[in-house]
Design a protein around this nucleic acid. Structure first.
Lengths: 133, 133
DNA sequence: CTGACTGCAAACGTTTTGCACGGTA
DNA sequence: TACCGTGCAAAACGTTTGCAGTCAG
């Protein structure tokens, strides 16, 4: 039961070995940037090209299977899409953690006050994580 | 009373005409990306070079006089630094508005629960603004 | 007067593109 | 089999750098 195969097909994307490898690596790391993704995949799939990584990241992001997380002072990382959550970024070890809170509802009142219809909220909290303190 | 001159000097940066023009444009727009900034300034300062824009944006960002705001699906914009506030980004007209709420305090409890010391919070709410609805 | 800043052009790293080949459905 | 996806190399893009000249303090 290769879930990623189904996932890709749901979005009308062919389940190629390259794409499956990308999804496996991303899901293992939770969040990863392009360089690390490329190196990680090359070690188990030496023939893969960087252009393929880019093309696939782009096509999977386009259909909202993946999401780009833009971080302060660092390269973007990519994650498999899941609903409204915040990101904790440790400024010391660089680790990114998910914070599963309903970010949209937090801002619901505020947005109503400003007559602003929120579709998406991107929240990044930077600081020092548990293990680095 | 040229406030920007003083502001620059407080950060040990020389108050050159180019820098003053950059700050005037940014403060007029609130938020602006590199391209628009360059074009805007060129129209009143035709000799300015793009490299100068970049160098100044970088030096002013380094000393935290300016801040980069990384936005989903769009180029980053720059703003003059001010304390903890969120950004509303209209997906239709592209307009960026400030939302003056104490973002850090919103997440204070949550971060305590996770033993995470927050230094900075970046919040971007994307959706549809008042006038676009 | 001195060091910081500017503008130009060249260099750089990252991302995208075109194309021939190969693989999925 | 038809089309989508891959890999390579080249191109495009945004940003940075080195340098000689200029200007702010």
């Amino acid at each position: 039961m290769d879930t990623f195969t189904d996932l890709l097909r749901n979005y009308n994307l062919k389940a190629t070995p390259q794409r499956l490898a990308i999804l496996q690596v991303i899901s293992r790391y939770g969040h990863i940037n392009i360089d690390n993704l490329y190196n990680e995949i090359k070690s188990q799939f030496s023939s893969i090209s960087l252009a393929t990584i880019y093309k696939n990241i782009n096509s999977m992001t386009e259909v909202h299977l993946l999401a780009e997380v833009k971080l302060p002072n660092t390269k973007s990382v990519y994650e498999i899409v899941k609903e409204g959550h915040a990101h904790l970024k440790c400024e010391l070890c660089g680790d990114i953690e998910d914070l599963t809170i309903d970010t949209n509802s937090i801002f619901a009142d505020i947005s109503k006050l400003h007559n602003f219809k929120i579709n998406q909220s991107d929240v990044i909290l930077s600081g020092v994580c548990k293990s680095c303190q």
